[in-house]
Design a protein around this nucleic acid. Structure first.
Length: 697
RNA sequence: GCGGGGGUGGCGAAACGGUAGACGCGGGGGACUUAAAAUCCCCUCCGGGUAACCGGGUGCGGGUUCGAAUCCCGCCCCCCGCACCA
């Protein structure tokens, strides 16, 4: 509702995927090769009035902020690609419709006949017309190639198509538009053999003055840029393919290394770093990067072009024609238009109805319940009706983290004091499949709430790390694929603590891998041995200093590893310590194992809590704090120093921790094994304190 | 096609440019036990050698360095995202 009031929520007609058998709208992800993922029926395209959020208004911020937040690089890259910034220009082309009043007497002839580039005089470009109604604006990232634009393509849905279609072409154009509309949204956007139809009309290339044919083709999408392109087959793969099929002229306007302006084109030349302009009048010889600016500037002087940034990011469609979901809180009044439901009437509660399934009309199940949707207009009191669509569940997940600390408040979504204290989220871990959905939506909603003054931060998650995915039966585990492993069987056989510890120990947290359950007995026996060590621990005498040293080294290691998400090495370190504690048959001292129970507690909380109680503590282990490494106790007095000769390991020597190079060299040379390889005086000695000494001979 | 992550024993994996394979699984041998479980002790990268040791070894080919799994250049393969976005 707040988005609506700020003009960030709006309604428009949009194409959706519709499964005729399941009678439901499908997400693009649920359409596999043009068919419904569940029943295999051929999916159709339908046009429905839907609610959208203007996330595209935030494209620049969603992109720029990525440079300042601590997220996995892979997730940031996915978001950058999704937002998809393109720097380019909009260029205006004048239209020439044969036989109409705007036809200025030219005789176009057949498409592609004699409308090549380069024959016009670019120093005398055609003057801009006052009447711009019939102009076509295209978006391009390659304004430098305009001298090679030999035809134009509009999306079949482009509103000017009807005007451009000459009488002899109308029928085939309508047939093509119908065929395009019948395609489902997914196959429409998949690269395939190019198809298209000539409209019969022409556009004037503002650089060359040439009249170039205007085609429609479904490889141009209405929703990106302006829905129209200038086609440069000499330097674009798609245009090249199209031009070959329909025998349209292909002109070279950029030459790169190893090919000059005369070499015939067998494939488009798309390198934009090394190329220089040719056949481009005053711009010949310029590098592409410079030409981009120069051409736009030149055309801008005649109001035929302007620099433009385009984003791939589309507005977020939030309407769902389902029963289960939060009803969109809007009331339609014939007089007042769409009105927000007054705050005092929120939330809009779903009616208790028996028939909540979608039907084949494509409208929401709620639209069948007149007694629910008929309400008076909140402004004028006249008869009005509720919106009957519900909102996308992603809308809820886009702000749930704001609600969590404030779940006790019934009167507001989130408590300002709690929000200030707990948010933004310091560390967030999730699947990378959310990189462009949940994580993008949550950032957008947070930015909006920030702009409205409700939050003092605009990024919800300071740090994000993506966990890996466990692969099973060749696929990522998922509920819809049915290849999940049910943890219940593991809880029963091994216990939840063992299973948790095993999962953390399995491998690097941020990488995935194939599922296998062969080695769960390792973590299990570790916990068994922990249990024995703690329950058999004595309090008499004093702890073994060697064991205590290892204990404090382990505290340091585990404390370092957990924030790095290096859980597998943390568990390994604890196992390693356990091997020291339970060496032989000796009963460990209590001081040797008590801090270990605390280290284990995040991994095996139940056993840790139980052992903690058996150690005589009355309060929970989770109130006990975290053990701290005592660096004095952890320090080694003597170390093993590696001895290399010419970089090859020839032995190790036991030396004082802080031994210097001189002492180490003397001891190393005294070692018989080392001496065998050292003949004469060393040419060079490399000494790495505490690590190794390398004698170069 | 574009982008990201990987390639190390029989397996999962460790390793600030500094002793490759920690830790665990699997395998082999042994102690305790009537027996089993649990526990405890050894061995387990490859080749040679009774052994001490020697040689080789981190996908492939080069390079930098006293020293490379790690850094650089050029390849090969696998996984994951995105993709007719002008």
């Amino acid at each position: 509702m707040q988005l609506f009031k700020r003009g960030l929520a709006y309604r428009k007609k949009a194409a959706v995927n519709w499964c005729p058998a399941d009678k439901t709208v499908l997400a693009n992800e649920q359409v596999i090769a043009g068919a419904c993922e569940r029943c295999g029926s051929k999916v159709e395209q339908r046009f429905l009035e839907q609610w959208f959020f203007r996330i595209s208004n935030y494209a620049a911020r969603l992109l720029d902020n990525l440079d300042h937040i601590d997220w996995s690089e892979t997730t940031k890259t996915a978001q950058r690609n999704w937002v998809g910034r393109s720097d380019g220009a909009e260029i205006t082309f004048r239209i020439v419709i044969p036989g109409s009043v705007s036809d200025e007497g030219s005789s176009p002839g057949a498409p592609g006949a004699s409308h090549g580039a380069g024959e016009a005089d670019p120093s005398a470009p055609s003057a801009p017309r006052d009447d711009r109604r019939d102009d076509i604006v295209v978006f391009t990232t390659r304004p430098d190639t305009i001298f090679g634009a030999t035809y134009m393509v509009l999306a079949p849905e482009h509103p000017l198509v009807e005007r451009l279609a000459t009488p002899d072409r109308r029928e085939s154009i309508q047939a093509y538009r119908d065929a395009t509309a019948r395609q489902d949204i997914v196959t429409r956007k998949v690269a395939k053999e190019k198809t298209g139809v000539f409209t019969g009309s022409y556009a004037v290339n503002p650089a060359t003055g040439a009249e170039i044919p205007i085609w429609i083709a479904d490889y141009v999408l209405m929703e990106y840029g302006t829905g129209a392109i200038m086609a440069v087959p000499g330097h674009d793969e798609r245009d090249f393919e199209f031009a070959q099929i329909f025998e349209l002229p292909i002109v070279r306007v950029i030459a790169g290394p190893g090919q000059d302006a005369m070499t015939p084109l067998e494939a488009p030349y798309v390198d934009d770093d090394a190329g220089r302009l040719v056949n481009s009048g005053p711009f010949d010889g310029l590098f592409v990067a410079d030409a981009k600016r120069a051409v736009v500037q030149w055309l801008a002087g005649r109001e035929a072009a302007k620099a433009v940034v385009n984003y791939r990011l589309h507005d977020w469609c939030v309407s769902r024609q389902r029963y289960w979901g939060p009803p969109i809180p809007i009331i339609y009044c014939d007089v007042c238009g769409p009105r927000a439901v007054p705050e005092r009437d929120l939330p809009v509660v779903l009616p208790d109805v028996p028939d909540f399934r979608p039907d084949d009309t494509g409208v929401s199940p709620l639209a069948r319940h007149e007694q629910w949707y008929r309400v008076p207009c909140p402004d004028c009191g006249r008869e009005a009706r509720r919106e009957t669509d519900v909102s996308d569940t992603f809308l809820d997940s886009a702000w749930y983290f704001l609600r969590y600390p404030s779940a006790h408040r019934d009167d507001v979504p989130f408590d300002p004091v709690m929000t200030k204290r707990w948010l933004p989220v310091t560390s967030y871990i999730g699947g990378n499949e959310h990189a462009v959905l949940h994580l993008m939506y949550a950032r957008f909603i947070t930015m909006v709430l920030h702009d409205m003054g409700h939050l003092d931060f605009e990024e919800p998650f300071q740090r994000f790390r993506a966990h890996g995915h466990i692969i099973r039966e060749g696929a990522k585990m998922s509920k819809t694929k049915g290849n999940i492993v049910n943890p219940d069987q593991y809880y029963e056989q091994w216990g939840a603590d063992t299973f948790r510890t095993y999962l953390m120990y399995l491998g690097p947290f941020q990488e995935g891998g194939d599922f296998r359950d062969l080695s769960i007995s390792g973590p299990r026996s570790f916990l068994n041995r922990l249990w024995l060590a703690v329950t058999e621990a004595t309090t008499g005498g004093s702890p073994d200093p060697v064991v205590m040293r290892k204990l404090h080294q382990t505290i340091r290691k585990v404390s370092d590893d957990i924030p790095r998400l290096s859980y597998n090495t943390a568990v390994a370190a604890m196992m390693e310590y356990m091997n020291v504690v339970r060496k032989g048959e000796r009963a460990p001292h209590r001081a040797e194992v008590e801090p270990l129970v605390q280290l284990v507690s995040p991994f095996a909380p139940h056993i840790a809590e139980e052992l903690w109680e058996r150690l005589g503590h009355e309060r929970s282990i989770f109130d006990s704090g975290w053990p701290v490494c005592d660096e004095v106790l952890a320090r080694e007095d003597t170390i093993e120093l590696a001895v290399q000769v010419n970089g090859k390991l020839r032995g190790t020597i036991e030396v004082a921790r802080d031994i210097g190079q001189e002492g180490a060299l003397t001891m190393a040379l005294a070692d018989a094994q080392v001496a065998r390889f050292v003949a004469g005086t060393p040419r060079k000695v490399v000494f790495v304190p505490g690590r190794l000494i390398n004698i170069v001979v």
